[in-house]
Design a binder for these strands. Structure first.
Length: 176
DNA sequence: GTTCTAGAAC
DNA sequence: GTTCTAGAAC
């Protein structure tokens, strides 16, 4: 099995499914990058955001509904989460990230992890929904732009602190 | 996506 | 000498 199909495989085992509806499921991210980190996936075999069109708008709204549901079920507050898609996804099967903004986790290790959630490499749900609604599709970022965003400084998501490296960022995040 | 590890950075 | 990052994975 290629690693990129890992998400699809995990959908096959009911033990992973926290919420199931006719259209979508919620699972826990296998390597959570914060205290809370869930993925909402459609049952329909949609590879990524780049396959989306206007006909998928109701499905996107269903995914967002499940995102709000899992936050409520966990007794958490919506404001403490960010909900969205990676602009450059690695894993096959469209997946909506539902992640708490603390980013305190032993699985958060690399600059790529940080910047994929805390730069324009993270597309908030509302932004993606609006873009599909207005333009009918999502465009892939040019490699130069991806490299530029991945190289951005390690800026804290809660204050102006800029970390020298990942260990110091992680220590800082724990203080918040 | 993760793991491993060489060599850069400190 | 140790910490940390970044590229290969057959």
């Amino acid at each position: 099995m290629y690693w990129q199909t890992g998400l699809i495989k995990s959908l096959l085992d009911p033990i992973n499914l926290i919420i199931t509806t006719d259209e979508a499921v919620v699972i826990a991210d296998k390597y959570p990058k914060a205290r809370h980190h869930y993925l909402v996936l459609p049952k329909e075999d949609i590879a990524s955001i780049f396959q989306l069109s206007k006909k998928h708008l109701p499905l996107l709204e269903e995914l967002h509904l499940l995102a709000r549901n899992i936050i409520e079920i966990r007794g958490e507050s919506y404001e403490r989460f960010q909900i969205g898609f990676h602009a450059q996804p690695s894993m096959q099967r469209l997946h909506l990230h539902v992640i708490s903004k603390d980013f305190v986790s032993s699985c958060l290790k690399t600059k790529k992890h940080w910047n994929s959630f805390n730069t324009s490499l993270f597309i908030p749900y509302e932004t993606l929904h609006a873009q599909i609604s207005n333009e009918g599709h999502i465009q892939r970022l040019p490699k130069d732009r991806v490299d530029e965003l991945l190289a951005k400084p390690l800026t804290c998501n809660q204050c102006a602190f800029v970390a020298k490296n990942m260990p110091s960022l992680k220590e800082h995040l724990q203080e918040h």
